[in-house]
């Protein structure tokens, strides 16, 4: 079986006449923590929106488990998208619902599980992210870090093959961000979930990343890829070297 869970070929993204990404190629292996890094505005979140199917690329193909996700029918795309769990920058929890109802939502919508099992899954997933006992809380009653954890619990509700995390540590203090990094590592190890993280946070990249691609505005594409340690030693390009060797 091909070990590539995602393969991106010749992908280009434009907003109007503005080029965001041009002709990029990379792949993500099953079970790894893959980092999409880059400075603000370089197009890394746009790339994630293409990967999760919220936007259709201008040109190029995205293959998920060997199936062409870009050219698939809406029905197939929707089926593939159910294998994704996504944590958005602002968590994306529905404010009017409790944490329990947020996690229940995809389970009630997309499965035949009965109430007892749904309730059990909510407890298990919340326990997994360290939020046991917070079922009845509203998102607004949780701190930023807790909301991110709850967002991850909801993203994991359907046991996704791939978990996408958009800037998981943004807006969090270093201690909370480090705890979230540990959670990401634990989920990857315990559940063997492939995790794609969009971030520019260096400590997260080095803590959790197995492989990294660095996107840069100057070429509207991937300027370097490899393990975090490899990119730290990347003397051939000053942009890459400066990004991975900056302080803080």
């Amino acid at each position: 079986m091909d070990n590539k869970i995602i393969e991106v070929k010749n992908l280009s993204v434009f907003y109007g006449s503005t080029t965001i990404l041009q002709n990029i190629d990379f792949h993500i292996l099953r079970g790894e923590i893959f980092i999409i890094a880059g400075s603000s505005g370089c197009g890394k979140s746009s790339l994630m929106r293409q990967l999760i199917g919220l936007e259709i690329p201008y040109s190029g193909d995205i293959f998920i488990n060997g199936i062409n996700f870009t050219n698939s029918s809406p029905k197939v795309r929707s089926q593939i998208m159910r294998d994704f769990g996504v944590l958005f920058q602002s968590s994306g929890l529905i404010a009017s619902m409790t944490i329990e109802e947020n996690i229940e939502l995809p389970l009630r919508e997309f499965t035949d599980l009965d109430d007892e099992d749904i309730s059990e899954i909510v407890k298990v997933k919340l326990s997994l992210v360290g939020l046991a006992g917070y079922e009845e809380f509203l998102p607004s009653e949780l701190s930023g870090g807790m909301r991110k954890r709850a967002g991850i619990a909801r993203a994991m509700a359907l046991d996704p093959d791939i978990l996408f995390l958009d800037e998981p540590s943004s807006g969090l203090d270093p201690v909370t961000a480090a705890a979230l990094d540990n959670l990401i590592i634990n989920i990857n190890k315990a559940l063997k979930t492939t995790i794609v993280v969009v971030t520019h946070d260096l400590s997260s990249i080095f803590n959790i990343g197995h492989r990294v691609i660095l996107i840069d505005k100057s070429i509207n594409g991937i300027i370097a890829q490899g393990t975090p340690e490899e990119l730290k030693q990347y003397y051939n390009n000053s942009i890459v070297y400066n990004f991975f060797n900056r302080i803080g």
Binding site: K123, V124, L126, S127, L128, A132, G133, A190, L191, K192
Partner: peptide, 22 residues
């Protein structure tokens, strides 16, 4: 072994949750 590990992760977390439950 992989299944046992998987079940242990979920079961262990559940026990912790039960301890914390108020």
């Amino acid at each position: 072994m992989d299944m046992q590990d998987f079940l242990n992760v979920l079961a262990a977390k559940k026990t912790k949750e039960e301890e914390l439950a108020f």
